[in-house]
Design a protein around this nucleic acid. Structure first.
Length: 266
DNA sequence: ATGTCCCGAGAATCGGGA
């Protein structure tokens, strides 16, 4: 029996503040696999019980006040394959978690913002992108489904921002950042939203300034990169933009892809 | 150049980050 697998990524900007939003969204859209970013909470503060009550198993890598990523599986607990991005043992920031969920190997990531630029934070971002590319190279050609999803903090092209000029000094749009992202895609990853929307704008983030959400002045920085095995089965993709217009919303909206699978998800 | 929201500190606002 044919069925679909829904994979989503959502930067919650604080799991404690956003738990009600997360639970409403899980119930409304019932994704099978979810990557969360910016938990901004220690491991001890992760709201496992509420998430389990919603029908999800969870794996998380928290950090007090900043960063923090998690993977949720509907009706299953993700099986961890990696915690932390390889390539720098001194890196203590919680930004990468990798696990098998519903038959997909999922790398869930929160790529460094990189501002202010220039400076050590921008250097860290570029170094992190090099480490990601080195790791991703070993994943893209695997004979099973692989996804790299999360908040990449990269505006890939001018179509991905409401006004490129307004962001020209920002780390998210710099030529070397865009080049690093393009090189990652060249390994064989498909940028799913861009592939499906073709030359139509689609945004995943709207900052808190000047009513940008209400005016749809956004950026596309949350990405779903699929390896060839997985991208061959894509049926649909989109952004749950209504979530950005909720009271006390995160500045990001959940972004998702639906995959055709042979059998119903248990 | 502007502006807003989250977190932690620690007691009321403020700094850091985005």
């Amino acid at each position: 029996m044919a069925a679909t697998l829904r994979i989503a990524t959502y930067n919650v900007n604080g799991i404690t503040s956003r738990l009600p939003h997360l639970l409403r969204w899980l119930e409304a859209t019932r994704p099978d696999i979810v990557a969360l970013q910016e938990l901004k909470a220690s491991d001890e503060a992760f709201p496992l019980e509420a998430i389990q009550d919603a029908g999800y198993g969870a794996l998380w890598h928290g950090q007090r006040a900043w960063n923090g990523v998690a993977l949720l599986g509907r009706g299953t607990t993700p099986v961890q394959s990696r915690r932390g991005l390889p390539g720098d043992p001194a890196d203590t920031q919680s930004r990468y978690l990798e696990a098998a969920v519903h038959g997909v190997l999922v790398g869930a990531l929160y790529l460094p913002n990189g501002n202010p630029r220039p400076g050590p934070k921008f250097d860290y971002k570029l170094a992190w992108m090099r480490r990601l590319a080195a790791h991703a190279r070993g994943l893209v050609g695997l004979p099973h489904p692989v996804a790299l999803i999360g908040d990449f903090n990269v505006i890939p092209e001018d179509i991905d921002v409401y006004d490129p000029n307004a962001w020209r000094r920002d780390a998210l749009i710099q030529p070397e950042v865009r080049a690093a992202y393009a090189q990652l895609l060249e390994q064989g990853w498909t940028d799913t939203l861009r592939a499906l929307f073709e030359d139509a704008p689609v945004y995943t983030f709207w900052d808190h300034f000047r009513q940008h959400a209400e005016r749809d002045r956004g950026l596309r920085i949350d990405h779903l990169l699929l390896n060839p095995v997985l991208s061959a089965a894509v049926e649909a993709a989109g952004v749950d933009q209504w979530m950005r217009l909720e009271e006390k919303a995160s500045d990001h909206a959940p972004t998702w892809v639906e995959i055709a699978v042979e059998h119903a998800i248990p």
